[in-house]
Design a protein around this nucleic acid. Structure first.
Length: 603
RNA sequence: GCCACCGUAGCUCAGCUGGUAGAGCAGACGAUUCGUAAUCGUCAGGUCAUCGGGUCGUAGCCGAUCGGUGGCUCCA
């Protein structure tokens, strides 16, 4: 049976509605600011935006007025009319619009699109008109403004954005809007945004007492609270088990190192901006490490290696510090201090595919365990214009290693998308892209090929022919950093962690204080069995205790009253509200231990 | 780093256009001894982010700094 082909967003009616709504918005804004300059206004996920260069900053009141005016405009039922014109004509139409003139130049000269990226062929130049407003635009649009439902769009926010996405350019004002086919869809979307806010890891992290930030410690430097500490311990335990099975060995390396190491690695010229500045002692500069690789390279190079020893897989949960710009920080997802689920695999070229796919396999095991389904594997490639700047200047090796990765993924039948200009400076990589609750995209895990740095470290092994050979290095971090992973898991589970990951696994609740001692004994016995439990013997009523445990999303509540104590039993209430009354503690322990040992998702 | 917005008790928030602060929860204490998501009462808690300025006077005005939020740029 033929599989139904999903319509591309670019071909959908929704896309045309949003693109057209952007034009209508631009018209409303230009009415307010006749001297304002327009730039571009494309559809995006869930909506659209338009970038303006205006004589003054827009205010929230302005946005309300713009939205109101847009409603009037769409009701005018103006047709969108396309006209193909020459570059000369276009320049006349947009004579007082410098940004449009720049775009026309780009189109005319050799095909640059609106973001300044090269196009394969010289495109035609077209303009779209609705009523009084004309915009340089390749379309497509809806037929008439009446296709934009006046109650199915909303202006969302105002933000700064650089012209053509380059921070050297002027900052424009970007107005974001959302538009849908019906009022219902808009309402659903807005509701969904509200729901997403509830599972924002920054909110949950505070409520569940996972981590905090403190002004005196500094931005981007999370303090892990006891509950967060437990999760980290569990994640490390998981990683160590999995890596041991997969043939990794563990190493440990210092947090600071002499400047020389990063000069040799090549990180300093590429990476200095993201590093904390050096400290100088007795004439020697030391840096806090932003990554562990160079030290692992030193360990590999610390003795002679034979092809018989390869692959060598060095693993470490290394603590790194990166000076991310202040505006880039974002809860736990983007921090300045982090612990990476790091490892470096040194192998020969003939072993590459197996090792690389071994890592991908590890990813899949983790994702299955966590039930992670919404992610995209991205093959991140170099860009020619970045050679010698962002990327090591060796095009031949770039193309070769990119092809090796592509082939390995294809042979493994693993779906992925390709993106240029996203590689590491030393080689291509597979990034696992995920989205935070509020919709921001992040690379969770990464699997990178390094064809450049081993040579700089003079790493070698003796091959079968008795000759020195430079190994390839695979950098990988399937469990990301503790920071990003915990942030992601908070949102993924909305704080309802599986039992093995839950900071507090069991809360024992006494109904009256006659059962307090019984409750404490039960908690102690659970702890003897390796289960994280404590008794709530506060003077609150049982209902309040249960509420407290539910709010902290404790998976199991053991309730004990006079009946249970009399019969030497317990009653179980799980986080999902299910109950199992008057069972033996031993029976519960079997259940809890089963879930924990299997790292099961069910309660 | 850039643009915009925000910063009031541990937390969530109220405080109209300036007349020197209030609630709920949490906490302490007391009472209550209770069957699956909040028992009642009392008390304690803030130099309204910080610093400077304007004003007879401000938590509400202006400026700077620090921190946060939404984007941009950048990234695990």
């Amino acid at each position: 049976m033929a599989q139904q082909v999903q319509e591309r967003y670019e071909d959908s009616k929704l896309y045309r509605i949003r693109h057209s709504a952007a034009h209508v918005m631009a018209r409303a804004v230009m009415e307010m600011f006749p001297d304002g300059k327009v730039t571009i206004g494309p559809p995006v996920d869930n909506g659209f935006y338009y970038d303006f260069d205006l004589p003054r900053n827009l205010t929230p009141e302005d946005l309300a007025l713009i939205e109101k005016r847009m409603r009037q405009i769409v009701q005018g039922k103006h047709e969108f009319q396309k006209t193909v014109i020459s570059a000369e004509e276009a320049k006349k139409v947009f004579a007082d619009q410098p940004y449009k003139l720049e775009l026309i130049e780009g189109l005319e000269k050799g095909g640059l699109d609106e973001y300044g990226n090269p196009l394969n062929e010289k495109p035609e130049i077209s303009i779209y008109r609705h009523d009084t407003f004309v915009d340089l635009c390749r379309g497509p649009h809806v037929e008439s403004t009446k296709d934009i439902k006046q109650d199915a769009f909303k202006i969302m926010s105002i933000a700064g954005a650089y012209w053509r996405g380059d921070e050297k350019n002027k900052m424009l004002q970007r107005v974001y809007g959302t538009a849908w086919e019906s009022k219902k869809e808009l309402e659903d979307y807005l509701h969904q945004l509200e729901e997403a806010k509830k599972r924002d890891h920054r909110k949950l992290g505070k409520e569940l007492e996972i981590f905090i930030f403190d002004d005196e410690v500094g931005p981007g430097l999370p303090l892990w609270l006891p509950n967060g500490g437990v999760m980290i311990e569990e994640l490390e335990k998981l990683a160590k088990e999995m890596e041991e099975k997969a043939g990794y060995v563990r190493v440990r390396t210092p947090n600071i190192t002499k400047e020389d190491l990063f000069i040799r690695s090549g990180h300093l010229p590429y990476y200095a901006e993201s590093m904390y500045p050096p400290m100088e002692l007795e004439g020697v500069k030391y840096y806090i490490k932003p990554m562990n690789c160079p030290m692992h390279h030193k360990i590999f190079g610390s003795k002679g290696r034979s092809y018989r020893d390869l692959p060598i897989r060095l693993a470490e949960y290394g603590t790194c510090y990166r000076y991310e710009k202040s505006g880039e920080l974002f809860g736990l997802m983007r921090v300045r201090s982090m612990q990476m689920n790091d490892a470096h695999i040194y192998c020969g070229e003939d072993q590459f595919e197996q090792e690389f796919m071994g890592v991908i396999d590890l990813y899949h095991k983790y994702f299955e365990l966590f039930g992670i389904e919404k992610y995209v594997m991205r093959l991140s490639l170099h860009a020619k214009q970045g050679l010698g700047k962002k990327y090591v200047d060796n095009e031949r090796l770039w193309l070769k290693t990119e092809d090796m990765v592509r082939r390995a993924m294809d042979n493994g039948g693993v779906p992925y998308v390709e993106r240029t200009d996203e590689a590491a400076f030393y080689g291509p990589k597979i990034d696992v892209q995920i989205w935070s609750a509020i919709g921001r995209e992040f690379s969770l895990a990464t699997n990178q090929v390094d064809f450049a740095v081993p040579e700089r470290f003079d790493l070698k092994f003796m091959n079968k022919e008795g000759a020195d050979e430079i190994p390839l290095c695979i950098h990988r971090a399937p469990l990301s950093t503790h920071e990003r992973m915990v942030g992601f898991l908070l949102e993924h589970y909305a704080g309802n962690f599986p039992v093995w990951l839950s900071p507090e696994q069991v809360r024992v609740i006494s109904i009256t204080d006659s059962q307090n001692e019984y409750a404490e004994n039960i908690a102690a016995e659970l702890r003897d069995n390796g289960i994280r439990a404590h008794a709530d013997i506060s003077a609150q009523r049982m209902n309040a205790k249960i509420r407290g445990a539910q709010l902290m999303k404790v998976p199991y509540m053991i309730v004990v009253g006079a009946n249970e104590m009399e019969a030497n039993q317990v009653s179980l209430r799980a986080r999902d509200g299910s109950q199992q009354n008057n069972i033996s503690l031993a029976e519960f322990i079997v259940r809890a231990k089963d879930r924990i040992s299997r790292r099961a998702s069910e309660l």
